[in-house]
Every structure is written in C-alpha cells, then in structure tokens.
Amino acid sequence: MNRSRAILRKIGWAFFTILFVVILNFFLFRVLPGDPARAGIRDPRLKKEAIEMLRVRFGLDKPVINCFEALNPIKLGSCAVNPLDTQFFIYVRNLAQGELGVSYHTNRPVADILSERLWNTVLLIGAGQILSIIIGVIFGVFAAWKARTAIDFTSVVSSLIVWSLPTFWLAIILLFWGSNNGLPLAGKATPGASSLPLLQQWADIGRHMLLPTITYTIVYMGEYTLIMRSSLMDVLSEDYILTAKAKGLSTFQILKDHALKNAMLPLVTVIAINLGFTVAGAIQIEAVFSWPGLGGAVFEAVGRRDFPVLQGAFLLIAVAVIFANLIADLTYSYLDPRVQTE
C-alpha cells in the first residue's frame, strides 16, 4: 500500500516536471530575443507578403498568450483575444495530439523528423552506455579489489584522464584515426545497403556505429570506473564482507554474491542522472560523425536556427531523461530491498 503510493508520487512528480519543461520550452522560444518568425526565413530577398504568409503558416501571427498580467513587463499577450486562439493554447493542444509543429527548414512535421532520429540516438546511447558501463564496472571492480596497487592507480588516473576529455575533441581525433583506417566516416548505413540481406545490413550499421560508440564508451567509462570503484570500496569495507570472508567464501564468491549487487545499486541512480549529461555527449558525437540522431538534429537545427525542431528536440530529450530517471528510481526501489519495504 505504502509502496504503491510512493510509486504514484514519483510518477506524479515526473509528470509535474514534464509540465514544467513544456511551459519552459514554450516561453524560452517566445520570450528570448530573436523573432522565430524571421529566423527560419531570414532570406532578405523574400517579399513582405511572403514572410507574412509564412508567419501564418507557422502560426506565428497569433498572439503568444492571452492576457497574462504577471508577465506584463515583457509585453506578453493582450486581454482582448480569445484564449483558444493563442500560440500557447495551440502549442499545448498540438502537443496533446503528439504534434510538435512544422520545421521551418524542411517543412516536415517535427514529430516525424524526430521520431526517425530518436531510434538512432537510442541505438547509439544504448550501445555506448552498455559498453561503458560494462567496461567501467570491470575496471572499477578490479581497481577496488586491487586497491592501492598499480592496477588501481592506473585505472583511477586513466579514468580521470578520459573523464577530462572533451567529447567532441575525442570524436575528432578518432575520426582522424578512423579515416586512415578505412572505417566509414559518416552516417548510419552505406547508401543502398537496404537492399542487402538483413545480417549484412546489421554488419554495415555496426561498422558505422563503431567510431561513435568507441568515443561514447571512452568518454563515459572513466566516470563509471570511478563510481564503481568507490562504491565497491565502500561495500568491501562493510562488516558483512568480513562475515562472508569468515564464512570461508572465496574472493570470487564474495565479489559475485555479496559485493557486486550492493555496489551496483548506487550505479543505477548515477546512470539515470548521467543520461542528461550523455545527451550532451550525443550531440557532440553525432555532430562529428554525421550520425542521424537527435543530437545531430539539434546540431543542424542550431546551424539553421530551425526553432521548431530545436524546440521539439529539447522537449523530447528532456522528457526522455525524465522518464529514464523515473524508471531508474523505480528500478532502484525494486532492486534494493531496503527501499522496497520502507
């Protein structure tokens, strides 16, 4: 009873956060200087009428919001308009229907563009996360187990070094390296590969994913190594490890049965919080490797000031991260019996 209430509260909280993001997302693009109407259509050759036409098309001719006294200093909204005919209402209504507006640049629905790209990012982040977690956990376990040895020192220092690497810089260096080693340098698949048998298609995607995934893995594994090390160090100095040792269990058994799960629990939360940061990494990696993901969409949209795409991508990323956090939170409480019954 108590537990399901806690879960409900967490879900409710996640939705509240999303609501906050939705509103922030709308006003960010309306309050900050720079007329979104002109941004996408900045070619000064356009005639006034054409610009007006575009404003109508993108719904920018409507008042931002209805009467909003509190925000009067920034001159938002007038009280005379129909609240249902404001940009904000239309934005919210469209969101509710899963519509994110139309790209200034490609004239396609933003939702279509992003949904094509979402999975590529999920693929990249997924592969990168899994690899960096696996490698980080392995190094972290070794570092903690062999604490204060050369192995430990090497792991810690190299983790700190890879943590300090700017993602895009590492990506550039690897692109440089890969370009001299015949690896594909851009995109997700070789054009025309869609006519190949499925297995070869996957192999093709795998080859394209290689450099971005390596970049991703290197950048994030250091952090996981450090977290795993310190978490495992904490666990291994707990009394129950001494108990396990006194029980005559071998080192391997102790690590496997008594230390790992306990040490991994904090990692779950860290991974979720990290998701927000890894999106930052994805933007940089996708920009360098022309990976057709969300990050690449952000990069391109920034370059073209394609605000509907930027807005949609930001919303999608934020919502994805919020959900990931929620799931991690719930997973954590599922995994840790101490939280479970509280």
């Binding site: 370009s179 340098l185 851009a186 995109g187 360098v288 022309s290 391109e300």
Partner: peptide, 22 residues
C-alpha cells in the same frame, strides 16, 4: 546506373572519404 548523394556533416570527412575511395 545509379547516383548516390551521401550527406556528411563536416567537410573534412567528405575529403577523407574521397581519398579513401568511399
């Protein structure tokens, strides 16, 4: 028989790809 236009986000990768025969 066919022409393929492939997108590269950065022009250096484009040059590298030409060099390597991609």
């Amino acid at each position: 028989d066919e022409v393929i236009f492939q997108t590269f986000e950065n022009q250096d990768a484009l040059v590298q790809a030409l060099k390597t025969g991609q």
